[in-house]
Design a protein around this nucleic acid. Structure first.
Lengths: 291, 291
DNA sequence: GCCGATATTGCCATATACGGAATAATCAAT
DNA sequence: ATTGATTATTCCGTATATGGCAATATCGGC
């Protein structure tokens, strides 16, 4: 189907009823236009228009071809316009995969605003902890706490979060309040893995505490819950425990120290994104910048 | 609309569900195919398919685009097939302009066969003596007794006719039977123009007779009629007067001499002819070859 | 008959697209 | 885990098409 483009040129020539005007409308040299139409005719094997310098007349074949072609070209234009809409205007369903804790803590509070901003958008959130396959599964976007190693994926930083140290008053009453990160190493530190190191800094001072506890779990929600139950010390972003702080279930400790900020990434499979995805990423970046 | 061709390629890729198979089906290198699809996506601004080396999956945009594109491409294929039909199979109406005398004498007897050969064809004959404008008027074909001077027109020889000399027995009884072309010059010779020369030859002998008469007319039918009425000598192809010879209204004179064969041309505006025109020209050439 | 408009053709420098091979990457099988 | 086969992509030299300009031819109106 090598002659589809020429078909569009032909339609333009017929509509303009002139090669030179069509060339102008198409913004191409009339020499090219003339040559292309001639080639089209040679390819088809039929003359499409009788031409004199003054007049253009469709041949019988040209009339038939024009009637069909103009519809085809018009439909193609509509198809591209529709895709253009997708680029310009968020529509359809936005499918996002992200960690459940990030979703509930950071994304959920923003959703009402974003959803009212684009009433046409629907949402599907997948909060399973697994790393979804952005290629095989129909996700527009994944939010990851670490940069993906695959070079094919596009990762944009949408937030930078840093953890701080928290514990329940009961726990502190029992084990005492540490005065320096070094003192963490003997304590019950609720970590994601059985062995971990918490990199802390205070001003220009840095300290890496090798920590651990009898409880390790890969769920922030669980760590938080255990902490409020007085099981140990947690190293979490403030936003995660904001409610607990307000309610007095947790208090900040070693508040001069904090973790190094780590990035949260919006990961996509390509840069050629529909508007819904682009707007969502931009929105998250904007709203989470302060974190 | 620079991306119509690529649209067809995209459809093929989706249908084949593979770049390499699509490339094979399209008979093009897969490098080109891959590049074109990538450019299409870049042009549109959206990724159309997620691809790994093993699997192809349509994006949401790709699905929408495919649904529309496949219809468009299919319609285009149909359009071209329809034109292909016009090239291969005579259909529609064949519009021919030709001299009335040629039409009645030579073409008419052949028409029944040609018409039964192609039942789908209709005919429109314009027998006005004027030279029709093949460009401005919807004629597929003109038959001319002389080669057109315009170099833009395509002329094919469909017949070669040579005239011979005939007269009515009454005329010969009155004026005598000429024994040599030189004797023509004093006689009543019914010509198209007031002044004419009849170029005759017999074997290797040639003679150009400057002839004329009191009657000149630009109609073969009229000349024939006048001849049968004994008004003079006519210089016409045998076929024109065949009936008169059979009926004894005319007899051949100086039958060793005949005119130089002159060509009859089928004239078209282009070589890119629909089947109906091509078949008609071929048919005439075939049937009139013996003349 | 002349003049302006217009399609076509030719030319050539340049840009673009192509084609083939190499590369990278994925998935299945062992 | 590793290998191997399959497949999309990338690279790069080359071929092709384009664009701009001018010349040509021709039409149609004055």
């Amino acid at each position: 189907m090598e002659l589809l483009n020429d078909m569009a040129l032909f339609v333009e020539v017929v509509k303009a009823n002139s090669f030179s005007r069509a060339a102008e409308a198409l913004d191409m040299p009339n020499s090219t236009l003339s040559r292309r139409i001639s080639l089209l005719e040679k390819e088809i094997g039929l003359r499409l228009l009788h031409r004199t310098t003054r007049r253009l007349e469709l041949t019988e074949a040209g009339q038939i071809y024009f009637e069909r072609s103009k519809r085809i070209v018009e439909e193609a234009r509509l198809a591209h316009e529709q895709l253009g809409e997708m680029v310009a205007q968020p529509t359809g369903t936005l499918r996002v995969s992200m960690p459940v804790d990030f979703a509930t803590t950071y994304v959920a509070p923003l959703l009402p605003r974003f959803a009212t901003l684009y009433p046409g958008l629907a949402f599907e959130f997948d909060l399973t902890p697994r790393n979804v396959d952005l290629v095989a599964e129909p996700f527009d976007l994944a939010i990851r706490m670490a940069k993906p190693e695959s070079p094919n994926l596009i990762a944009r930083v949408i937030a930078r979060v840093s953890a701080e140290l928290y514990a329940a008053p009961e726990y502190l009453a029992r084990d005492g309040i540490p005065a320096h990160p070094a003192e963490l190493e003997g304590r019950q530190c609720l970590t994601m893995h059985t062995l971990a190191s918490w990199a802390l800094y205070s001003g220009s001072e840095a300290f890496e505490a090798k920590v651990g506890s009898r409880f390790a779990c890969n769920s922030v929600a669980m760590i938080r819950r255990l902490t409020t139950l007085g099981m140990g010390i947690a190293f979490l972003p403030e936003r995660v425990v904001a409610e607990d702080l307000q309610a007095g279930r947790l208090v900040s400790i070693l508040s001069a120290w904090r973790g190094h900020p780590s990035s949260v990434y919006a990961v996509t499979e390509t840069r050629l994104l529909p508007a819904k995805t682009q707007r969502f990423i931009e929105f998250l970046q904007e709203e989470l910048r302060s974190e």
